[in-house]
Design a protein around this nucleic acid. Sequence first.
DNA 1: ACCTGAACACCGTTCAAGT
DNA 2: ACCTGAACACCGTTCAAGT
Lengths: 204, 204
Amino acid sequence: MPTPERTSLDAIIGAGRDLLEADGVEGLTMQAVADRVGVRAPSLYKRVRNRDELIARIAEATLRELSARLDDAADPTRGADPGDELARLARAVRAFAHERPAGYRLIFGPGAELRLSEAALADASGAVLRIAGELAGDEHRLDAARTITAWANGFVSMELAGAFRLGGDVDRAFEYGIAGLTVALTAPRSAASAAPLAISVSGH
Amino acid sequence: MPTPERTSLDAIIGAGRDLLEADGVEGLTMQAVADRVGVRAPSLYKRVRNRDELIARIAEATLRELSARLDDAADPTRGADPGDELARLARAVRAFAHERPAGYRLIFGPGAELRLSEAALADASGAVLRIAGELAGDEHRLDAARTITAWANGFVSMELAGAFRLGGDVDRAFEYGIAGLTVALTAPRSAASAAPLAISVSGH
DNA sequence: ACCTGAACACCGTTCAAGT
DNA sequence: ACCTGAACACCGTTCAAGT
């Protein structure tokens, strides 16, 4: 005789997400999740294989939320200047990380390789790849996208980790980075030569 | 009647470091460390307050090793062209991360803010700050250093996390980033304006 | 078909008792 | 003064028994 379902996978993932942000990943225990959804810990194993899978599902859901934000921010109808698009994209990543620091770390921190599906990662890369192509040209699209992603993710990760302790204005440093990347990726360079031998740059 | 010391703080940190690289941070258990140094787990608490402190000591030791490598790589007597210095510095970070991935994540990953002393962080920042000043000028030294650090750390962290799954040549992307940053930080910009309105760049 | 209590292995940590 | 066994609280996970 079937027992009625007293919870659901969505409720479990939602509770896990909330716990993660409230108490960090070490506060995300099966016991705590079970309490939140009103069930005993062993019952969770009817919906998820184990704690790692639960974490992976939370990570995947969080990445999909981030993707949607990025697509929205990068929407060309908001202004199609590649530099502006890059700026909007970068600020959107940073805003998301500030709202959901623990979730962000789940996506980009150690162990992420085990948690995220190829498909979700590809989705999340779409907007950066497009803008990278606009800025640097199609031949350098992937390299440029990796430069943008590395910088933005590195900046935000360090910020979340409290690594910027030398004073100064962190917001300004972020905008400085955006402007720098725009210049860097727009500057014509040959794919072969790692560093240009001679470049003349005139500002203003 | 005193019992002879059967281990030492250094031996404990060393064993912890080795376990960390061999089995990851979750393999770094007090029990495993105790086994390695030939003592029972409770005895470790004579030398470290708890597991978190042990991890912090390993992180600090690892950061000091990284600092030494960076200072060596950035040594101007190896060639004082700022672009070359930046390239050597960036490659040194990446090489270190490849050698000691788990230790690197301990330094830059989540939780690092609790683990690293102000002094060790300041030491590690010396070389980047100097090179950033050479490239971008003293007014932009800190912003430029943050851009470099964010990019390098972001790139390496993503690489370690297996985030570069779209094919392409990761080594080339790294060199592309180095070249891009050199251009970006060398380009004159006013501190106030986030993005330059018009810049003419001529390659070659 | 789902839920539960009981149990197990494993962890960090404490502490009284040994030498 | 350091080391140890025993114990405790807490965790993830399994499983037989309930409905």
